[in-house]
Design a binder for these strands. Structure first.
Length: 846
RNA sequence: GGGCGGUUAGCUCAGCUGGCUAGAGCGCCUCGCUUACACCGAGGAGGUCGUUGGUUCAAGUCCAUCACCGCCCACCA
């Protein structure tokens, strides 16, 4: 066995063996309880980042744990076509070659997309494997594969037939670069420093009204002016008509509660074609709707000099012209939020567009009711409110996109204007039989297809075994930024199509930030490639780090040294195993009940501590507090098993003592099982090296040791205390690492005394001789031959005295004695006694 | 504008329903290459728990306030 742990040497081969032996394949026919998780399909836009690694670690920990606790686990992998994101990636590639997608045409574009999907899909799968994700690759799904496509079409048709899908012109978020509408959730708001322009609009029959706007170019599409009816300044002009400068259009002046009298001048130019609020005002007052912009964001104002200009240029010209006419009253600096496309970062233009909409009322109500009924549990709980708040304010969902890529809307038009909606492409029109059919050019929002993930991956709409066995799934674990975009929609569609929520628990993991607190991103150069970390520290170390942070707080700054720490932990486990295996005669004779028969104090102690660790690890995973699990296992392994137990049994191991071997093997075997879900590779490797016929650790039952021995814990605790004090004195006295004499009170007992003396490397004596200065320890005293004094004593005395003073002061307070629980008072009194005794020893036994 | 989270050792973070002598890892200092591990062992320094008030016998832990930092939501031109 090599002296040091080397992750590279073991990981790949274990993964290959697990997969070859079908450890990850779920059996829908199994009679075990079913446990299912559909892995959130990563966007197929590039490599996985640290957040994915963290998420994968969480999922896989649960998957492996559940297999060990006896469930039939389906852990289903897949990836997402991410239409708008992928389109942007390909466009950027093309741009590097000096091309545009229009130049190469749809066919060539599709080829590029295919190639991209193949490459990136393979990269993603490879990365998941490197992380040790125990996914059922026989069930790998892609949101664009033919079966998934059919699920998406089926969902669309079903919604359509319920009358929930309709087509209508509405104001939408228009991305001029992608030339597509996007949903509210895909708009990213950024602060901009702009100018607020105050513009005078003349009123028919005399007078004028001044409005304020940051976007003068949109005035070309103004069709009204609105003021608050309660605003005394403007009462008299309601009902009159303003004249739009530069255009000459007549603008009705209307009274409208939505207008804030305090903002700007209190008068609002109404542009129903280019502003959501104005759109509503226009609807209410029957104002004309003018579309002043083309799909690419250029001005669409035939007959005016600004026609065809891009918006910013038009703005400059308009401002100049207004100045020239004396209509620009003033300009003020103005800071506000401007919407950008979250994929290409272009400024969003709100404009009127004919789009496909999905009514959400019923699905929303059902989801709210499901929450009220406790059908979905959120971790941490607070996110349920985030989700419900968003649901309650939900509007109809714009599901159409004008992209080149995605699921085409299954709506067909014949030459006679009839509409056929159908999952499969129809040969003829359903109404007139015409064979000349044209499909709607729109594609669906990517999130429309993702929303179906938990059941579409299992075969829906077909009545498959998988669907029967594994729906509803159990857990969805994701980042909070995706709660509304994805989680909420899965819940809604799950309830609608399957009649049940798609998962019982939603687990929101933390966001990993760069070390300096900025967000991790490739463009900022703050990203960390998980593959670098895997190469440096191994998958187990990365995963252990991930489980230690995933659920501990809302955000975590990445700290590479913590990953490194877990690699050392792997090495520690490795060497502990090496020590135990080096014991001669490695037969293990663990007969049933061998635990209860242990005589050595250290054996009883470590078995008791093991039970304690096991229950902590289990409850951590069960409650999604993975940090508690990894911390408990780490502390047990390092600070108890290695630091104390192995040190205590070294001699026995060297002699080939069978009982020491039994307990050591048993403890290590259990420890490796406890750690396996979080650190699969190193635990599999080490476990396989233990004596006996070995299968895979993941197929072993989850350990449930219940040997609790309070007496052994107390006695061994005393050993630890004595040893630590002797060591402290030794170093403070500058004595050599070994040697010296220890005298202990009879009350300590032989077992404890012998063990303590051995571990502290001192000789146990009945009475301390005249050599050196005697130094007090918890139940006796120690002296060293080469002792140079006791630098420690004064400091220790002060610490004890301070502590005692504080404790006595608290005890002296009558209110404390009256009101604090008896137990707390008793504890404090006990402590005071202990401190007093310690002080006495320190002075009396010099 | 509304909501949520954070502010604890030099750094990254734990501290559940108030009882702490405030912990861990990394870093730092001093010893030690002792036949599992120098990817190690032993010892140690280092914090008035963001501010100001309050509740309580007792507050890092509860309440209020302010200040920063971060996130989510939102149709103020």
């Amino acid at each position: 066995m090599p002296k040091a742990f080397d992750p590279q040497a073991i990981e790949a081969q274990w993964y290959a063996r697990w997969e070859a032996d079908g450890l990850f394949v779920a059996d829908a026919q199994s009679d075990k309880p079913k446990f299912a998780m559909c892995f959130p399909p990563p966007n197929i836009t590039g490599e996985l980042h640290l957040g994915h690694a963290l998420q994968t670690a969480v999922y896989d920990t649960i998957a492996r744990y559940r297999r060990m606790t006896g469930d039939e686990v389906l852990f289903l992998p897949g990836y997402d076509h991410a239409a708008i994101a992928t389109q942007n990636v390909i466009e950027k590639q093309l741009a590097k070659e000096g091309l545009t997608k229009e130049q190469i045409g749809r066919e060539k574009f599709d080829e590029r997309v295919e190639r991209w999907y193949e490459q990136t899909g393979a990269t993603i799968i490879n990365q998941l494997r490197l992380l040790g994700a125990s996914m059922d690759w026989t069930r790998l799904r892609f949101t664009m594969d033919s079966r998934y496509y059919r699920s998406v079409m089926t969902a669309f048709v079903a919604f359509y037939e319920k009358g929930w899908i309709y087509r209508a012109p509405r104001i939408v978020n228009w991305c001029p670069h992608d030339r597509s509408a996007i949903s509210d959730l895909e708009v990213e708001w950024q602060e901009h420093q702009d100018t607020l322009y105050f513009i005078k609009y003349p009123i028919d029959g005399g007078g004028d009204v001044t409005i304020a706007t940051v976007r003068p170019e949109t005035m070309l599409a103004d069709t009204g002016v609105a003021v608050n009816p309660a605003d005394k300044r403007y009462k008299s002009i309601i009902g009159k008509t303003a004249v739009l400068p530069l255009v000459g259009r007549k603008l009705p002046i209307v009274g409208e509660d939505a207008v804030e009298a305090e903002f700007g001048t209190g008068a609002l130019k109404v542009t129903p074609g280019h502003d959501p609020l104005d759109y509503e005002i226009g609807q209410r007052h029957g104002l004309e709707m003018v579309n002043g912009m083309h799909e690419d964001g250029s001005m669409n104002v035939p007959g005016l000099p600004y026609d065809g200009m891009d918006a910013l240029e038009a703005r400059r010209r308009i401002v100049d012209d207004l100045k020239a006419q004396g209509l620009l009253v003033k300009e003020e600096p103005y800071t506000h939020e401007v919407g950008h496309c979250d994929r290409c970062h272009s400024i969003i233009e709100p404009l009127i567009s004919e789009q496909w909409w999905l009514r959400m009322e019923e699905m929303r109500d059902n989801s709210v009711a499901a929450s009220a009924a406790g059908q979905v549990r959120w971790h941490p709980e607070r996110y349920e409110r985030t989700y419900l708040d968003w649901l309650r304010g939900l509007h109809d969902w714009n599901i159409g996109r004008q992209l080149w890529l995605g699921h085409r809307v299954p709506v067909y038009y014949c030459e006679n204007g009839h509409v056929t909606v159908s999952v499969e492409r129809p040969d003829t029109c359903a109404k007139c039989g015409s064979a000349t059919l044209e499909q709607d050019p729109d594609v669906l929002d990517t999130w429309f297809s993702s929303a179906l993930w938990p059941f579409a991956t299992l075969g829906w709409p077909d009545d498959t075994d998988d669907l029967e066995a594994f729906y509803p799934t159990d857990i969805n674990c994701t980042a909070r930024e995706i709660i509304n975009l994805w989680v909420s929609r899965m819940i809604m569609t799950g309830l609608d199509f399957m009649g049940e929520v798609p998962f019982a628990d939603v687990v929101i993991h933390c966001v990993v930030q760069a070390a300096d607190g900025r967000r991790m991103s490739k463009s900022l150069g703050t990203g960390v490639d998980p593959r670098d970390l895997l190469a440096k520290y191994g998958a187990d170390a990365l995963r252990a780090w991930a489980t230690s942070v995933a659920m501990s707080s809302q955000d975590v700054r990445f700290d590479e040294s913590r990953v490194e720490g877990y690699r050392r932990f792997c090495n520690k486990l490795w060497n502990a195993t090496r020590l135990i295996l080096s014991s001669p005669g490695t037969q293990t004779a663990q007969a049933p009940g061998f635990i209860e028969r242990q005589e050595h104090l250290e054996d009883r102690w470590i078995l008791s501590r093991l039970s304690n660790a096991a229950s902590a690890v289990k409850s951590g995973i069960d409650t999604f507090a993975f940090q508690d699990s990894i911390n408990a296992a780490y502390a047990f392994a390092w600070n108890e098993f290695c630091d104390w137990y192995l040190e205590a049994i070294k001699d026995r191991l060297r002699e080939g003592d069978a009982s020491a071997q039994d307990v050591a093997y048993h403890s290590l075997d259990n420890l490796l099982r406890l750690l396996h879900p979080m650190m699969p590779f190193v635990t599999e490797e080490l476990w396989s090296r233990l004596p006996g016929t070995r299968d895979y650790v993941m197929r072993q039952p989850w350990p449930d040791p219940r040997f609790v021995d309070p007496e052994a814990e107390e006695q061994f605790g005393l050993v630890i205390k004595i040893v630590e004090e002797v060591r402290g004195h030794r170093q403070a006295a500058g004595a050599p690492p070994r040697g010296g004499a220890l005298e202990l009170d009879r009350s300590v007992g032989e077992t404890v005394a012998n063990l303590a003396a051995r571990l502290a490397h001192v000789e146990l004596v009945d009475e301390l001789g005249a050599v050196g200065t005697p130094l007090a320890v918890v139940a006796g005293k120690v002296s060293f031959p080469a002792g140079t004094g006791d630098a420690r004593r004064e400091r220790e005395r002060k610490r004890l005295q301070d502590d005692l003073d504080k404790t006595q002061a608290r005890l002296a307070n009558p209110d404390f004695r009256d009101r604090a629980p008896a137990e707390v008072v008793a504890n404090l009194e006990e402590r005071a006694t202990g401190l007093r005794e310690a002080l006495e020893r320190l002075t009396a036994r010099e």
